[in-house]
Write a protein that binds this DNA or RNA. Structure first.
Length: 889
RNA sequence: GGGCUAUUAGCUCAGUUGGUUAGAGCGCUUCCUUGACAUGGAAGAGGUCAGUGGUCCGAAUCCACUAUAGCCCACCA
């Protein structure tokens, strides 16, 4: 006996264990068509959030569906070592002990990180199991495991040998808190309410003025960053700016320092902005850096790597925090009469995407990847359609970025990450090799006397994304030639949110094509971001996050998954609130109760072999089989185009409306119960399998409870329903016509129920019903109509008959509710008048349409025919209603 | 500054190549507890599809402009 209530927690724990233990998530390469997906690896420091839940639910739906279709399926899980994020977490822990990473030293610190990973790194991996992910845990990978690390070293070396990796002294984004360089896209720009300081730079040779105005002749410079002033090596004007043409070539005095700097002209300067004169600080601004290169200016670095001023900023400011220095320096400028005035000014300021510290532009030696040569074939692969974005519009954004791609700064001044395989020796010689041994070989080729101990490995590590961009093939064994790599690469689908198209998707495209010769996936499926009910991004600081684990606890994983699928649109972001997950929970309950009904009825179900013709079927039986066939085809078709939401709707409607609301109600009073139940069993089993990708646990549990599956079997490897064959449909006498006939019958039932409600007939009361119709089939439905309408009797009279009783006109015929003296003539007359008015409107519009020659000539035949039919039908309805109206007048 | 997207019922959203009288869930109204299920059932109310103009026999759907909202990219100090 099934329990009255479904115990989701017990079922979910039990089935996940069973699936994993029996290896149901695992396939080995074979002769079948593969379907492979790699999971976007979450940070090893991460905890499961709604974004993961959305992303992974979509993937698991696709994966389970394909697996049930018989494809050899791989969904590869894993985590990302997340350089900065993880290092920050461990450093924070150290801080509590009053230590810094420098106190431990590199090796000890890395031991601590690995220790941390062993202890806490499994959190998210455990949480993913709660979702029901059918990921192949036997193939779980980590971006910092041995295999991935080999791949990283190999890739770096190869790119270096090809001249695509180079080291250069460039201005980079620098996070003073993390103490490392950041790539451009690791910087988040935020609106900042700041100021524009107007500072006077005296022209050399001008006379000293009165107090408060030290020099008579000066030029005025506007800046948002006064603290960088000690690093200025020029001021610049636009070459076309006539106001300042006379100044170019002259020299001005840098306030507070007394240093003399030239006035130069450069197109970069906007005449309209500020005063039209810019201070140039090549070591602390990316634009100024380029201007400096063009004009051969000195680069003066005035800051330390932790955001303090150094001695080059001047003795007074050395050691000062950069923002403290700004205040101090502005105060000094004012005191000395250099500050003209201050304006409020809003601009965008870059922040570290990890710790949110204000990013500093800073000159330093870093490693870069030349991206243009890698980007070109990656652009071509999408242009040619070899790789497809779903929805397609994301390709535009991809092209836009790829066509304006900048070189990628890949070195990070961290300890946690893949160490750069570059080795220095002798007098600035460098070799790059996959291992220290190979490096030594290369070094010996340059200088035979070099010993292993002479080689100094580059202290920096690589950007985390430098391992993630290899994920689709490094996880399959590359650079080894493995069977997995051969079979599962390229992967089929990549499912991810829009926010990592640049970080990750675009770079995987480049690496895949460059190292494997083929793009890493065929379809890139981009879904929206989960937002709160107000449309805000979910974040810890706002406290508006929903915790998927809490939702699973409250409603079950199936409920979470189904609700997410139902509210997800690939085209836009989804707003969610806790109540939305009740939909899934309620659906779960509905499935459970429908299953209980079947169990209770099971003794009535004769053992009819599935697939055999059932003999003479009633119209309701044909109807459910036809609806089931439609649902199966529809769901397959929908999932083929990744419309996970539409699939959920289709199966929800089929299960709830068709099976539960109508067919189960029919079965209760069916004249030949054993056949009706056998059909229900068949249809129910198909419905369970259609639902399984969305709600894996409850479907598995019910499938076993109802005996569809035996010990050791699983729904996740049973066949995904494709609908009935033409032979079956013919044998059972299914047709669109029968289907429509039953829909009409339902309309008649609904009409009587509405009349009962209007006339307040108690639900317990039996009524007399008369149906006016000429359809000879109608009479065969008398029994089922009686039950559904709760009628004492159903009589049939010819169409066009009119009785002085409340009635509604339906596709089935006109249904009359016999009330024997209870008829409210006035109310009925009013209702009829209302209906007539409505019909008059319809008739008018369809007459106008049919009178239009162009409509008849251009519209598809079916549409015109339908319009004609509808018009005739409405006219008939009007005639009938007018007769009735007289009776109630 | 450049690019993208959205605007449909009180709320959240569907609406597949333009084609009958625009749908769902939640919420709301009325009624219904010995019935598989009140986490349920039945019947309802509720929309000039943001606005204006255009193309077309026909527009929620295609085009243009306007309004509003949001996102992404970008070096205006």
């Amino acid at each position: 006996m099934m329990d009255k209530r479904y115990d989701a927690k017990a079922a979910e724990a039990k089935w996940y264990q069973t699936w994993e233990k029996n290896g149901f998530f695992h396939d080995d390469p074979d002769g079948r068509e593969p379907y492979s997906v790699v999971i976007p690896p979450p940070n090893v420091t991460g905890i499961l959030h709604m974004g993961h839940a959305l992303n992974q639910t979509i993937q698991d739906i696709l994966v389970r569906w394909r697996r049930m279709q018989g494809r050899n399926t791989l969904w590869l899980p894993g985590t990302d070592h997340a350089g900065i994020a993880t290092q920050n977490v461990v450093e924070k822990a150290l801080k509590k002990e009053g230590k810094r990473r420098q106190d431990l030293g590199r090796e000890k610190f890395l031991e601590r990180v690995w220790e941390w990973k062993r202890q806490y790194g499994g959190t998210i991996v455990h949480q993913q199991r709660m979702l029901g992910n059918s990921t192949d845990w036997q193939r779980e990978r980590f971006t910092f495991d041995e295999g991935c690390s080999k791949a990283v070293a190999k890739v770096f070396t190869q790119l270096y040998d090809e001249g695509l990796v180079y080291k250069g002294n460039y201005i980079v984004n620098w996070c003073p808190r993390c103490g490392t360089a950041l790539a451009n896209d690791e910087v988040e720009h935020e609106e900042n309410h700041g100021h524009l300081w107007y500072v006077r730079y005296p022209v050399v040779g001008s006379e000293k003025g009165a107090a408060g105005e030290p020099y008579k002749d000066y030029i005025m410079v506007a800046t948002t960053r006064p603290e960088t002033l000690p690093g200025d090596t020029a001021v610049a004007v636009n070459p076309k700016d006539e106001r300042y043409a006379h100044l170019v070539g002259k020299t001005v005095i840098l306030p507070l320092t007394g240093r003399e700097i030239p006035v130069i002209s450069d197109d970069y300067v906007e005449k309209e902005f500020g005063t039209g004169i810019v201070k140039i600080t090549p070591a602390h601004d990316p634009n100024d850096f380029l201007v400096g290169k063009r004009h051969g200016l000195a680069e003066i670095n005035i800051m330390t790597d932790d955001g303090h001023m150094n001695e080059l900023a001047g003795a007074k400011y050395a050691g000062m925090d950069r923002f403290k220095c700004r205040e101090a320096l502005v105060a000094d400028l004012e005191a000395e009469g250099y500050l003209d005035h201050i304006e409020d000014y809003d601009n965008q300021v870059g922040h570290c995407y990890r710790c949110h510290e204000v990013v500093e532009s800073r000159l330093s030696k870093q490693w870069f990847v030349k991206m243009k040569p890698l980007a070109e074939p990656a652009i071509a692969a999408v242009r040619s359609g070899e790789v497809r974005f779903v929805p397609e519009r994301w390709s535009k954004i991809y092209f836009n970025w790829m066509e304006n791609i900048q070189d990628w700064c890949i070195s990070r001044q961290l300890w946690w990450g893949h160490r750069i395989p570059a080795y220095y020796f002798g007098d600035g010689e460098v070799v790059v090799a996959e291992t220290p041994e190979l490096a030594l070989e290369k070094a010996k080729a340059i200088d035979p006397n070099v010993m292993a101990a002479d080689l100094q490995q580059d202290p920096d590590v690589l950007d985390t994304w430098f391992s993630s961009w290899l994920w689709p093939f490094s996880t399959l064994g590359w650079p080894e030639k493995t069977a997995d790599l051969d079979y599962y690469y390229p992967t089929t689908d990549l499912v991810t949110a829009q926010d990592i198209i640049f970080f990750w998707v675009a770079r995987m495209m480049m690496a895949g094509i460059h190292f494997m010769g083929k793009p890493p996936f065929r379809n890139i499926v981009i879904h929206g971001i989960v937002r709160d009910a107000q449309g805000r991004k979910m974040s810890k600081s706002l406290g508006n996050s929903l915790d998927p684990l809490e939702l699973i606890d409250a409603y079950s994983a199936d409920a979470l998954r189904f609700s997410i699928a139902l509210i997800t649109s690939l085209d836009c972001d989804s707003k969610v609130s806790k109540e939305k997950f009740e939909i899934g929970r309620n659906f779960c309950t509905k499935i459970w109760n429908a299953a209980r009904f079947m169990e209770m009825q099971s003794e009535n179900a004769a053992a009819l072999p599935a697939g055999e013709p059932y003999g003479n079927l009633t119209s309701d039986e044909k109807h459910i089989l036809w609806a089931c066939d439609k649902a199966c085809r529809k769901v397959n078709e929908i999932l083929e185009s990744y419309r996970v939401q539409d699939g959920a709707l289709a199966v929800y409607d089929f299960f709830w409306t068709e099976i539960c609301d109508w067919y189960v109600e029919y079965v209760k009073d069916s004249p030949n119960k054993s056949v009706s139940l056998a059909i229900l069993r068949d249809v129910f089993w198909k419905a369970l399998r259609l639902l399984h990708p969305y709600m894996p646990f409850v479907t598995e549990e019910v499938a076993h409870q109802l005996g569809y599956l035996g010990e050791g079997e699983t729904i996740m490897r049973s066949e995904f329903p494709r609908g009935y064959t033409d032979d079956e449909k013919a044998a059972w006498g299914l047709s669109q016509e029968t289907y429509d006939f039953v829909n009409a019958k339902r309309a008649a039932v609904t009409a009587i129920r509405a009349l009962r409600a209007e006339y307040k007939v108690p639900p317990s009361a039996f009524v007399k019903v008369t149906v006016a119709t000429d359809d000879p089939k109608a009479e065969t439905e008398a029994e089922s109509l009686k039950k559904a309408m709760r009628a004492e009797s159903v009589a049939f009279v010819p169409a066009g008959s009119d009785l002085a009783m409340p009635s509604k006109i339906t596709d089935f015929g006109t249904v009359y509710l016999s009330l024997e003296g209870l008829v409210d003539k006035a109310a009925e007359s009013k209702r009829i008048a209302g209906e007539l008015a409505k019909l008059a409107g319809f008739i008018k519009s369809s007459e106008a349409k049919l009178a239009n020659e162009n409509f008849v000539a251009h519209a598809p035949e079916a549409v015109v025919a339908e319009a004609r039919r509808k018009l005739a039908e409405n006219k008939e309805k009007v005639a009938q209603l007018e007769k009735l109206a007289k009776l109630f007048a």
